[in-house]
Amino acid sequence: MNIDLAVNALVRQLELEKSDICSKPINETEIKLSAQQLIPAVETILDAGIWHLSTITCLQVADELVLLYHFWHSKGLTLCVTLETEHAQINSLTTLIPGAEFYEREVREMFGVEFVGLTNPSPLLLPDDWQSGFSMRSEKPNKTESEA
């Protein structure tokens, strides 16, 4: 199963619009999802034989946090979920992909995203007594792409 077939399966099962899918440089396809669609989307991807989650990137754009789940199977597939910065919360992938644990723990402590169901939410990189907030959040939030 390749990435293109997995994308078709996602479009069918989640009834995605064409505008939700875009191509990025170096053979990468990005799909925009809502937070509720993430778990069904990952289940579809796993069923399609794409098991490798390379990492999870989080970034702050204006007053939103963008989560990018980078999958790979000869080509890249990125699932993009946008959350409100205040009370950012999403389901954990660790029950489906145990290898996501460190990625989610890092995003949790650096950006303050709460992963519901994360088996081990203890700090990964920062000290246990860290009290200086979420260090990767911007003091001056970045502009949106259209503003840039």
Binding site: K24, I26, S54, T55, T57, W72, G76, K143, E145, A148
Partner: peptide, 22 residues
């Protein structure tokens, strides 16, 4: 402006860089 995911095979395995430009 744009974003890219770059991958390569380090001695220990896949290295991933995500770069976003404004």
């Amino acid at each position: 402006a744009g974003e890219v995911v770059s991958r390569s095979e380090a001695p220990r395995g896949e290295v991933v860089y995500y770069v976003r430009s404004d």
